[in-house]
Design a protein around this nucleic acid. Structure first.
Lengths: 351, 351
DNA sequence: AGGTACTGTGGGAGCGCTCCCACAGGTGAT
DNA sequence: ATCACCTGTGGGAGCGCTCCCACAGTACCT
């Protein structure tokens, strides 16, 4: 009789109803106070808050999620094996920005790795179950099916580097085009005229944009286009070394190199050294990313810094806005949002 | 009339009830199939599974959590700022083991940092709301209040290094005592007799156990105890350097040093070098952790390896068992579980 | 024949919340 | 005085599941 209908509750955390009884109000009113609705009188609000404090009431997330059809959680999906995640400062910076922006929110951040097929399978299940209100996607390759899955499931998502100029998802990116221009203009102003470029993998949109920036900066400075100064790389150190070797063979008169990443710049440095070219005496060298490698290279590498932490913050802003917009399913879609953040050239001894 | 009572469901994921209708069975039966109950006939199970596949049914986690009073999630709590998490390979190894062991489970892993006061506050709320079924605690200091909070909230938890010999939480640890013995015995067998020890912070239980192992190994080999050979360190490189300097001043005749961590060994190496002692010629040096530092030191450092990944796996095993045990709240408590895993000496040039 | 025991199944009740309708009481225009 | 329209409030219905009781059917004992 006493325990009628009281199934699993051993210790028994207080419920909304109990708080309501204690405060002498109705359930709806307590709910309104908890959720910060303005339509509550000051006196009532105070009474409810007192009851909440006395009882140590904490809302039941599952009940709320079920009733309101939301989870108050978002996922940061990293389509890489965990190893890379820990190896690259990119992710830790991103996480810092995301965490900071989220810290005055009720939202909970989930970190999900989707490196292996198996993990991707799990993630698909996870998303199908709508266990998060939104998704942050970082470091996505051009042919990744994940963005489309997200679109199909109608889950709000923000991507950290658009897959192409026609990206349909809301995206945040650094100004790859402008960053490349900065690098090239920096070398031009240093008196260099034969500036080569080692590109990143061209199926990565950002790498393409860097090539565009490189080309336009040279053209605007009145230099004739010379496609022989452009050599494709693949973001690896070996690739950078090979590319540099090819460039030296083809254009022995080059006096500067803009590498599409610091790692490739490290490879290029090795090739230059083996060819007996001094840095920056014979050849100026500029990288991209301003990673730890840049600071520790010999000589220290001039590099283009991306505001990764801020990118993380902006991604959260946009995602939260999109989640909020979702509720009234009225006027959606029309304006794609693409935020582009400025880069900064960090000049060091290599140029 | 058509949309009577159908509130938020726009697209409308299928529910248990719909699957039941499709399969021509009752709701309870579908639930039994989904949860792998054996009390279902093969024919019925097949019919239900077909309906699930056709409808693309995915259980609603929130509803399940509410009804069953569990979350199917566990938290890995890191009481450190994120920076340290990324800096130390300890965490990434741990995460790998944990992830592996969890991958054939329905359990979801949450990574929670509790470095700042603010984050700890949040965590307390989080735990009070019982948003996870269990907690994995790594790298906890002796005076941390977190374990007690967990106990008070009756949340199953496993800790990765007991706070003391009287640890009440289930714990997994590497054999600090045995590891220290291995290190000392290795140096003894190399003909060293005056072996010093730079300890870790002694408020860390594991560091104490290493001192115990060091003492006992020497005693068992018939060496008279000499407390002057023991110098306290604090796990930092500077501390290791200072400790080494003190040791050299006090016992110039020492011919070997067992440092309580690789980082301190690096500090000790510097002090030895400055004092003109060669490694391993004049003094043998052995560290603890077998971290990247050990491999890259000059000369490469002999060190004691802890099976961190396996520790992660075992922690999950124990935690899942504890969560399962929880359901029938019958015979609990009596046996504290403390798992200790063997260490391995990795011999390199420094000894 | 009657009993006991098990297997497989259906469906009611309830988990703790949010949403929303209903309604009381106040205010100001007509 | 009448009506319209606010603000603040109570509480019913329902979210999609799990748990468990009830019961039909079959099998095996007395």
């Amino acid at each position: 009789m006493a325990t009628h209908g009281t199934r699993g509750r051993s210790g028994g955390r207080p419920t909304l109803e109990e708080v309501a009884a204690r405060a002498g109000v109705g359930r709806g009113t307590v709910s309104r106070v908890i959720n910060g609705s303005p339509r509550v009188s000051d006196a009532t609000r105070a009474a409810v808050e007192a009851a909440v404090a006395e009882l140590g009431y904490v809302p039941n997330t599952a009940a709320r999620a079920l009733a309101a059809n939301r989870t108050d959680a978002i996922a940061l999906v990293v389509p890489e094996p965990e190893t890379r995640f820990f190896a690259e400062p990119y992710f830790s910076d991103m996480l810092k920005g995301v965490g900071a922006e989220l810290s005055d929110t009720e939202m909970q951040l989930l970190l999900i790795f989707a490196g292996s097929d198996r993990e991707r399978q799990r993630l698909a299940q996870y998303l199908a179950a709508h266990r998060v209100d939104g998704v942050l996607l970082v470091s996505v390759h051009a042919d990744d099916p994940l963005p489309d899955l997200l679109a199909q499931l109608e889950i709000p998502a923000v991507i950290s580097g658009p897959r192409s100029a026609a990206e349909t998802l809301t995206s945040v990116d650094s100004d790859n085009y402008g960053g490349a221009r900065q690098a090239v203009e920096h070398m031009l102003s240093g008196g260099r005229t034969r500036i080569a470029h080692i590109t990143g993998r061209l199926d990565v949109y950002g790498a393409q944009r860097r090539v565009d920036g490189y080309r336009d900066a040279l053209r605007d400075a009145g230099h004739a286009a010379d496609e022989r100064l452009i050599e494709p790389g693949d973001f690896t150190e070996d690739g950078g070394c090979r590319a540099m070797t090819n460039l030296l063979a083809r254009c022995p008169d080059l006096d500067a190199v803009f590498a599409g990443s610091d790692v490739m710049a490290a490879g290029a440095r090795q090739a230059l050294r083996e060819a007996g070219r001094s840095i920056p005496g014979d050849v100026a060298l500029v990288g991209y990313d301003d990673s730890a490698i840049a600071r520790h290279m010999d000589p220290p590498l001039t590099s283009v810094r991306q505001p990764i932490e801020e990118m993380g913050r902006r991604m959260i802003d946009l995602l939260l806005a999109e989640i909020a917009d979702r509720r009234p399913p009225a006027s959606r879609g029309l304006e794609r949002r693409q935020v582009v953040l400025a880069t900064e050239l960090v000049a060091r001894a290599s140029s």
